[in-house]
Every structure is written in structure tokens, then in C-alpha cells.
Nucleic acid binder design. Structure first.
Lengths: 341, 341
DNA sequence: ACTTAGCACTCAAGTTAAGAGAGTGCTAAC
DNA sequence: GTTAGCACTCTCTTAACTTGAGTGCTAAGT
């Protein structure tokens, strides 16, 4: 489609625009020594590139700005191999490994780290909870009227739910907990149903009335468990992007990161481990049509995925960001595959 | 100090400025029928009010704007009795009582409600954890290498800490949990020390080596418990206040709400139940010297306080906001004193 | 001793005009 | 196919001018 020189010019235009944020003129490009052609020639090429839809002018007599299509070609032809230097690699790995015990905290930390290193907004998730098998469970008395139900999944996620449940001692709760986990262990959390819970009765006939009281409460609260936890970081970075410092847009953006459904929509698209980039209008969420969204997924143990989304203005340092995201993704996969233990 | 008419004029100026956000001129005030004096007279009075420091001009030939001192007098002489109508009272009470079991969720909800009703930023806290007595405790196995320590305080706050601790069965953890709670119950959480933990040994001689391994881990993790949990809501409201839509200020404000130390500083001033207002430079935190900060505390049971802070621009509807804050505070106090049970 | 009409004055904000600067497209020559 | 040259276009900045809201002060009225 594009000849070599056109590609080279397009790349120079986009590089310059990413650096400076101003429309790029023919003279600027012509100064590049590896090209050795005059601005007039560049103008001719630019006219062609514009006709093909890769760049456009914000107004007559202005330089050129890359279109979504232009960014697309640019991004697709980027070579990001081994860009990160050893220092940065060590930094990322050390920070992710430092002092965190809980898997979720590592993911949270990764989101923070990415936000800081890329200067963009980041959302990360930890593999879903409901589809995992239950590995432990405990009922803990917290007051005369309340009991805490703790659920532990086989990927070490812990969720707790407060139940309204009165007049039982911790001793009885311990017995019930033991019986429950014996009956439920290994079921996926979404598969726990009233039938399985009811098996309790056969174990603990002497507490039949307590259990009759507990079973519906348990069932209802299990229904309300949330699946994914999102870790959001770096929203503040949007406040300094000129494009978004407009107060109404900033407010909408803020809301975006607070709404679980939108985040879910964003995450549902991610099904594989590679790095995927959606530019401008390629995004399904209208609010993001001035943004680029970089997504990836890290492998959790062997068969589960955690997801990462990086959101920023279309004008971003794709090369640098892709390599940071990729290395962070790989490091998380490594950590969760256990190679650092 | 100020005669009746001056007070009346000052109030009119501030009311108008709060409504419109523009410097208030003498002609505007003179139109008020209850005053019946000409703009020239008002100008004279305004000159006096300015000399006394209650108002000032942003520039010569502009109308007047209230100074911090002016706002102070205005706020001190506000009468907020019974401003909230029955509908709003019912709304607040019902929302706070609806479907929430966990005390912390009620506080979180209250912060959200306040943010929505006032259009300002809100931070609320739940009574401190470390000074409370321990009421329950449980160790739960979450993987081969990790154990979750659950602590329940006598005010029903639950904290969990993940410990690196391997090679023990849930059965043994249950025994240890039982022994621990027997030895520690009633101690305040900050008073739990290695001496008290070590009593375990006498109870469970058969697991001495497990316990020797566990004790230092427990001690270290108890040190790292965080005291207060903050619920922040309504930051987004700052994005539409013209004064703060400046990107750098918005960013700083965002950071403010993320930094626990700053929030702690804000909360430490609150020691009593009444409504307190700090206007502009009355605030110790420099970033807030263009803001008014309204603080109050709700009573938790009989001897503990939870705190509420509302932050907005100095130009806010003090009357309305004070009454909403006050009613919410009272409702929380009522809920936690148990009168709705 | 207050109050008020009147007037000169000030300042911010909006409007207009001019000019500089960056960049383009096109043409004609190389 | 490339390039120098030139007329043209559009944004952005600056300065000058205008408008309008509001003030302070003075002098006359109550």
C-alpha cells in the first residue's frame, strides 16, 4: 500500500506529533537527514498520505496530525523487542516482589507501578472469584447479631460477607464451618446452591433449627458476591492532559473509573495474553474515542487470566508504554506461576 | 461592632455572592425592598465594611466579595434550626437504614449521601480500631504458604492480615485460634504484645515449634494494622467548581484525598460532636485555604466518636449544608446507639 | 448628621484590526 | 521525480478601542 518512503514519512510525522503535540509541517520533516528530500517533495507525499486517510490537517495551512488509521499503521509496525533496559526490568521486578504477601496486593501494586511509569490511567483485575473452587470457609462471630462469613478460593482470594445472624456461639459456628467446608470444598463458588448447603443438616442434626435459620441467609448472601475486584490507579494523570482538563470531560472520565459495568465491558474483551491496542474510535465506549486503550492479560498459574487495561490519550509513547506493560505482564505471570518462590 | 443595618447589608452581600459567584455591587443591594436606602448610602456602608475587613474588592471598580472574616460573621450568625423539611429527613434516615448490615457500610453510605446532597467532597471515618478491645480472632488457611488472621473488635470492625505461614493444617490453626482468643479477649488491640501472645505456649505445648514460628510473625503483623478507615466520596464535585477546574489544583486536591496522613491531620482536630467550620485561611492545610471545611462527629454507642469532614469552596450554601450534615450526624448517632433496632 | 443625586474615574472584558508566522498547494523549471 | 518559488490561508498574538458595571467623592437636600 504505502511505499517505503511514505511509511518513513508517516512514522516521522507521528513520532514528532507524539513528542510535541503540534501539527507537523513539511519543513520539520524535511530537516531529517536520513530522508534527504526537500519540503516540497514532502508536501506532495503528505498530500498523498492525507488522501489515503493516514493524516489530516486540523485546518488549512496547518501541519498534519495522525488519524486513527495513521496511528494504527504506526502501532502495527512498531518493534518493541527488548526496549526496556536492564535497570528498568530490575526495578519493576523488585518492586512487584517486595514485601507483598497477598496476591491481590501484588496486582494492586502493579497497577500503581504502571500508572506511575506510563503516566496514564490503569485498571487491573485479579482472576474472577466465582468460577474458582472453594478451598476454605469460616463463620466468625462479630457481635450478638452479626456473623462474618469468610470464603477462600483456590486462587487465594478471600471474600467476606457480614450476615445478620443472632444467638449462636462461636463453638457452634465452628462446627457448622467445619461441616460446611467438608461438604462444599472443591465446588466452584457459583455452583454452591441450597442443595449443597443443606447437607449440613445430616451432619449436625442437633443444631437443626440453627441451620434452618442459617441456610436461606447463606444462600442470599452468596448470590451477592462480587466477581472481580478492580484496582484503579493513575486517574489523576488525566487531569494534566490538556485534552481532558476540561472539567466536564474530567468528571465523565472520573465516573468511568467508578462504574463497575463500564469496567466490566472493557475487561470482557480481553481473552488472550498478547498486547492489544484500540485507538480512538476503535473503542466501543464513546467516552474513549479520543483515547488509546492498551490491554493485556497475565497468566495466573496455568489456566486463569488476570487483566490489565491502560488508558491514555491517543498521543502517547506507544513504544515505551507497550514495553513497560509487556514486561509487567510477564513479571506478573512469572510471579503467579511460582517461579520466584 | 456592626450596627443592625451593616449586618443586614453584609448578609445580603454574602447571600448574593453565594448565589451568583460575582462581586456584588451597591445597586444590586439597594434594590432589596426591606432596606429602602439608595445605592449611594450602601456604598458608604460598604466602604465601612471594607475598612473593617468583612468584604473586599477583587479590583477597583468591582463589586464586593466577602472576606474570610465576613464569612465567619455570616456563618456564626446563621440560624440553622429545623431547616431540613420532613421529606429530606425521611429520605436520609431511610437511605442510611436500608439494607446495610455492616456498620462501616452505613458510614460509607452516609459519606456518599452527603456528597450527593451537598455537592461537595466528603470524608468519613469509623471509630478507631486499635484502641478497641479484641472480641474475636481466627486463623484461616488460604494456601500452603499463607494464613489469614482475622481480628474482630468489640465495635464490630473486622480487619484481616495475610501471614506467610506454611505447613499447618486448619485443625491446628483452629486450636491456636481458640487459645489465642481465650488469652487475648478483652485486651485492646494496641496492647496485644509478645508477652500475651506467648501465653499460647502453655496452652498448646504439643505444638510448641509451630507456635515459636508463629509468634514473631503475629507480632510483626499486628504492628502494621491501620487504625482508621476513611470513606471518601464526592471528589468529582471539585472538578466542576471553576476555582478548582484548573488542572494543577485539581490534581493536588485529588492527591489530598489519597494521602492518609493529611486526612489524619484533618481528623485529629475533631474532638467533639458539634458542627465546626473552618473558613479559608483558618485551615491549617495550605491547600485548603480557598476552601471551607465543615467537620462534625457522630457518637458511636456511648463513648466513641466517628468523624465526618465536608470540604468545598468557601462559596457554598452554608445553611443548607450545615443542616444536612447535622441531621446525618444525628441519624448516625441514633443508629449506632441502637434506637432503630 | 444622614441620605442621596450626580458625575468623573477605574478596571475587566469584549471587539476589532493589524501583523507575524507557520504551513500549504501549485506551477514551472531542473 | 524533484525542487525552488510564490501566492495564499489560517491561527495566534498584540494593541487599540469600546462598553459596562461599579466605585468614590462632592454638594445639595432632609
Amino acid at each position: 500500500m504505502l511505499n517505503n518512503r511514505q511509511q518513513k514519512i508517516l512514522k516521522l510525522i507521528i513520532d514528532d506529533f507524539i513528542d510535541n503535540g503540534l501539527p507537523v509541517g513539511s519543513r520539520t520533516i524535511s530537516k531529517n537527514p536520513t530522508l534527504g528530500i526537500s519540503s516540497a517533495t514532502i508536501r506532495n507525499e503528505m498530500a498523498d498520505l492525507e488522501e489515503l486517510g493516514y493524516i489530516f490537517q486540523p485546518h488549512t495551512s496547518a501541519g498534519r496530525i495522525p488519524s486513527d488509521l495513521g496511528y494504527r499503521l504506526y502501532v502495527d509496525s512498531l518493534d518493541t523487542e527488548r526496549l526496556l533496559d536492564a535497570d528498568q526490568r530490575v526495578l519493576i521486578r523488585n518492586l512487584l516482589l517486595s514485601g507483598k504477601i497477598k496476591a491481590e496486593e501484588i496486582v494492586e501494586k502493579a497497577a500503581h507501578l504502571l500508572a506511575e511509569m506510563t503516566g496514564l490511567a490503569v485498571v487491573a483485575s485479579y482472576p474472577g472469584f466465582k468460577k474458582r473452587a472453594l478451598s476454605n470457609l469460616k463463620l466468625i462471630k462479630i457481635s450478638d447479631t452479626k456473623v462474618l462469613l469468610i470464603l477462600v478460593s483456590d486462587n487465594e482470594v478471600v471474600k467476606s460477607i457480614t450476615l445478620s445472624f443472632s444467638g449462636t456461639s462461636q463453638d457452634i459456628l465452628d462446627l457448622i464451618s467445619n461441616s460446611l467446608i467438608r461438604n462444599l470444598e472443591g465446588s466452584t463458588i457459583e455452583d454452591i446452591d441450597i442443595k449443597k448447603i443443606s447437607r449440613l443438616k445430616y451432619d449436625l442434626r442437633q443444631f437443626e433449627n440453627v441451620i434452618d435459620y442459617l441456610v436461606p441467609i447463606l444462600r442470599d448472601s452468596l448470590k451477592n458476591i462480587e466477581d472481580d475486584e478492580f484496582y484503579v490507579d493513575g486517574f489523576e494523570n488525566f487531569l494534566t492532559v490538556p485534552e481532558f482538563s476540561n472539567s466536564e470531560k474530567a468528571r465523565k472520565m472520573y465516573r468511568l473509573f467508578e462504574e463497575k459495568e463500564v469496567l466490566n465491558e472493557l475487561f470482557n474483551d480481553i481473552q488472550r495474553e498478547g498486547i492489544f491496542i484500540k485507538i480512538g474510535d476503535e473503542n466501543n465506549i464513546p467516552l474513549l474515542n479520543e483515547c488509546s486503550v492498551i490491554t493485556t492479560a497475565y497468566r495466573y498459574r496455568s489456566n486463569d487470566l488476570g487483566k490489565i487495561v491502560v488508558i491514555g490519550p491517543k498521543r502517547m509513547d506507544y513504544r515505551g508504554i507497550i514495553s513497560v506493560v509487556e514486561y509487567t505482564r510477564n513479571t506478573l505471570s512469572d510471579i503467579f506461576s511460582g517461579i520466584y518462590l
